[in-house]
Amino acid sequence: MKHRSLLLASALALGAQGAAAQDLTVTSFGGAYGAAQKEHMIDPYVAETGANILFEDYGGGVAEMKAQSESGNIQWDVVDIEVIDLERACSEGYVAVIDHSILPPGDDGTPAEEDFIPEALHECGVGNIVWSVIFAHREDAFADGGPQTIADFFDTEAFPGKRGLRKRPQVNMEWALLADGVAPEEVYELLATEEGQQRAFAKLDTIKDDIVWFDSWSQAPVLLNDGGAQMVQSANGRIYAAIEDEDAPFTMVWDGHVYDLDVWSVMNGTDQEEAALDFIKFATRTVPLSGMQDVAYGPTRRSAQALLPEEVKANLPTAHLEEGIKADGIFWADYGESLGEKFNEWLLQ
């Protein structure tokens, strides 16, 4: 009897493995954003092709891709990646080069090369959204309007309370310098120097005791909601969704926001490259992209932007470009490693 059940179990295991080989693993950021992608990209794709998709969450960054790549166990197929990390993932070979000629034209007939905004067609990725890192605070946490600027975010005397920040050097270093009075256009230049880095850490030190660290964007609105922090760094769409869908008493602050693109990439070395590209072709068509307006992210195709109502456009990062800075993927490709290390040492101090 034991024999039989063992055989059965092994048969089950093998069967499961056989079935699973067909699954396409798509990894993205979960939460409200993940829900929008599921609704407008994953589900329609599954309905159209009958493909089996495993939709995974991750917290961003390149570490997981790197571990898969260096150990040779490629487990993801498609990954949604911030351009701030893309340059590094691309130059280190974690994600594959994508031939843009395979992309379909926009629904209005514009060829893909013209339809996408220029930054959206990267050597290793196809544009998904324009989004931004902003900060938000609870309306009830502060009298007279609360913090209005990045400098206020770092001002614990005028605005006491916990600040939620994502645990990584990216954006936090930029903000520290902005709050310390550095002009937006000089931020990355300064961060490339030892003095600039020390200055940023020194500024972060002033709020270190009040920081609540989180690992994933989806935690940001949760922290703000359950009182774990009075102001949080967040992807703009998360806060927008909480305000729109749940009437959360949050206020967004656009000052000093760091805007960036998100792209779909294909893991280098996956055995499902074809299926992965097929999914990307579908997900970056005009209509699926325009669905990202649900979470206030701007689509990267002009033909999709044209579909958006005016009141939605006002909430997109594109309406606030002059208040923010553009995330510098090349800078972070070069300095991500060493600043990551310094950042972690700083955390442990």
Binding site: K2, A9, L12, A13
Partner: peptide, 16 residues
């Protein structure tokens, strides 16, 4: 499904 599958197979192997 995975938890039961892996748990049962691992338990059978270990028990045997």
């Amino acid at each position: 499904r995975n938890s039961f599958l892996i748990g049962i197979a691992a338990a059978l192997l270990a028990t045997l």
